[in-house]
Design a protein around this nucleic acid. Sequence first.
DNA 1: CGATTGACGTACG
DNA 2: TCGTACGCCAATC
Length: 111
Amino acid sequence: MIDLGFFELVYQVVRLIPYGRVTSYGAIARYLGSAQSARMVGWAMNASHSIDTDIPAHRVVNRIGLLSGIAHFPNPKYMQEALEKEGIKIKNNKVQDFDKHFWDPMVELAL
DNA sequence: CGATTGACGTACG
DNA sequence: TCGTACGCCAATC
């Protein structure tokens, strides 16, 4: 039985992030209705390591496109490499053209 | 069981 | 424009 808590909601949204796109913690939080719970999104990402589901957490960055969670990955450089592999340019742990690659669940999913 | 922290973001000075 | 304070909710100490 799936525990439809804040975490599962976050996981579902993150899983919907298309290839070559990125989003922010705040965007997900707002989509879930808890605009000021961006921290919880990060918390959920941290817990994503423990779950079986494949969570493309590397596609989730903070509002400025900074890879704030890079240090929390098994291999820190995996996040940057994964993003670059998807065609996203990373400079100084920051997503270039973040606005172009930004995937807003509220817009894309047309809430 | 109470206090602190945390992969963030917005508001205010 | 930059720096500091607060909120949100769950997990950890």
